[in-house]
Design a protein around this nucleic acid. Structure first.
Lengths: 197, 197
DNA sequence: GTCTATAGCCAGATAGAC
DNA sequence: GTCTATCTGGCTATAGAC
């Protein structure tokens, strides 16, 4: 593993746990097992290091979502694939959703300008497709945006709020992962069942 | 409005937008329209001011949830009341959920020790009730914890991730509020429909 | 490339006048 | 109680040896 990679991985951990404002360059250096000066040698500044992490985070998520959203599948198939793949991916990066949501909240302009450069998921086509399938009588007459909100809520929230949920409902890490495995298929079934004609 | 109240309201806004680490005492003072030294005169330190905000946030949310969770209602009635009341409350405090989730992530021990002192929502009784209604054939055989996760996901996520969702699905503030009004009743209907025998 | 040492600034906190 | 002015520590960032 190169020094740059060691720094990058360490930075991802610290930024995802503490956020940009709460992260300390010293902590990233310690986590990477190298000297603080190397951070600046490799990445120039805290902000640039953060941007690298952010770009990587979007870069991993957005294309997968776009691919599913913009495919030739039916809406039901898209829902099934999205929940399945998103959860599979996020189980491996459990703090990514909360990280993105948090930075989006704390610094909307900054992250927004970012999302625009990287190709962000654009659900316009999907919304049109949902409306068409409603017109065709495949899907019940619902608000497409509410449907998208339901899908994201059921899929993303358990990860975004996992620390709080683990504390509240008293779920162990192992139990949490088991529950997410189940959700890979159960969410789509439940949502499709509630909207199919 | 007393000076202390002015500070408190300003602090809530800034802390909820920026988080503890990102908030600046100067910004809170500016927001309150008073001098920075007054913050320290009234609240002694940034941490104590933050604790006051956190205590207030839990204090507003937890009792309402507890009351519903621990009442004599049926599970279906509890779901209906919870979603209705939670959304009604949070529409007035739209950044509260993300604030709590964020601070929970960034500083779990700190916020946890806090939740224990304040009486946090304890869903043990509710889980037992769900299991009983399953045994009675009222509710389909599902995992009670998954059901709670579904309820919280559908209710809390749109607020927690509102900045991201508004950007992604392209919802205006007005449209967002309309959608949340609808969700006050639609979420409970949808969930109850999917679990009732 | 990797380190030590340090510059410089920013933000939390306080002293003290009124 | 409310302000101005200032101290102090910590954190980003850099200079410079090797």
């Amino acid at each position: 593993m190169t020094t740059e990679e060691k720094i990058f991985n360490a930075a991802r951990i610290v930024f995802q746990n503490k956020g940009f404002a709460g992260a300390r360059m010293q902590e990233i250096a310690d986590e990477a097992g190298i000297n603080k000066a190397m951070l600046y040698y490799c990445f120039k500044s805290k902000e640039l290091l953060f941007k690298a992490i952010l770009r990587n985070a979007f870069g991993q998520l957005a294309p997968q979502i776009n691919e599913i959203f913009n495919s030739q599948d039916t809406v039901f198939d898209k829902i099934t694939k999205f929940t399945q793949r998103y959860i599979s991916f996020v189980i491996l990066n459990p703090y990514l959703p909360q990280f993105l949501i948090q930075e989006m909240n704390n610094n909307p302009e900054f992250v927004m300008s970012f999302m625009i450069k990287e190709k962000r998921p654009n659900p316009v086509l999907l919304i049109a497709q949902i409306e068409k399938e409603i017109a065709d009588g495949i899907i019940k007459p619902i608000n497409p945006k509410q449907l998208l909100l339901d899908i994201f809520s059921m899929t993303v929230f358990p990860f975004a709020a996992q620390v709080m949920m683990k504390g509240m409902i008293q779920i162990s890490d192992a139990e949490f992962n088991e529950m997410m495995e189940v959700r890979k298929t159960s969410i789509a079934e439940q949502i499709i069942n509630s909207i199919k004609n």
